[in-house]
Amino acid sequence: MDHANSGPSSWPELADVVPVPQDDGPSPVVPIAYRDGFREVMDYFRALYFAGEQSPRALRLTTEAIEQNPGNYTVWHFRRRILEALDSDLLEEMNFVEKIAECNPKNYQIWHHKRWLAEKLGPDIANKEHGFTMKILATDTKNYHAWSHRQWVLQALGGWETELQYCNKLLEEDIFNNSAWNQRFFVITRSPLFGGLKVMHDAEVDYTIEAILGNPQNESPWRYLKGLYKGENNCLVADERISGVCLKVLKNDWTCVFALSLLLDLLRDGLQPSDELKAILEPVRSSDPETADADLAITVCCILQKCDPLRVNYWSWFKTTLSQISDPLVVSG
């Protein structure tokens, strides 16, 4: 009841405005059971929008409409025109949009409005923006909107100085946080402060291997490690740290799917397995008549078929691709 009474029809400043009801057009299909408040605000909005009225009361009405329906991009658009016409304080507007965003952290229009404001306010606002996304990410570390906004601010307005530290902190809190791993890749490859992946490569490989050894069942660092080689499989095979980490993990647990899968990639791309590696897989190999005579890549596929039953079809298929391509490799090896 209170809600209905506090709607725009009770605002003295709108007493002279005649609301324009929605034209529902031909018999509505899949109608939405609107609440009264929603219709009322939109009827008043329509009246001021049609009149093109860029005034403080129109601004206040857009606030009300946004609270009812934060996804209405026309309302946001009209609000931006009013803000420009009134030469409004954009920092104050930023506070407003942040309050709305905290209640609707996954709404595209709100984040777009925030970006529009940040663009106008320029590089001075960068750190404040980073503070805000940090706040949102503190309650939901994987909020896609917040991460997108953060990456945009970094690229458009800056604030790279502490970004790697931030990634470190998030990964210390939760090493399984794939969004933080992705952000790390973003920083390493795009920050103007580091000189790119080439410069950072070695240190990153070490960091990632440490993360893998701490939690071999965490897929994120395994994929990140491969990503650091950007499809340059020769380098991946040639870097002994890579086969080394597979070996270390498999020594403790020869069923680790991620280690087996990376090892398989290495073998497919020409890795000559060390005696130590062969020794680890030997007991498995000889115990299974299917793999007793097979080359090591086939053996690893067979192990994966058993250890990763959800993807048994994939590993079976993978095995058929090996027999198609591995022959010339066997000859050359």
Binding site: I32, A33, Y34, F38, Q68, G71
Partner: peptide
Amino acid sequence: TELPGDYDKQEV
């Protein structure tokens, strides 16, 4: 036949 009122936030 009719979407419940909760969907009015997605009215757009």
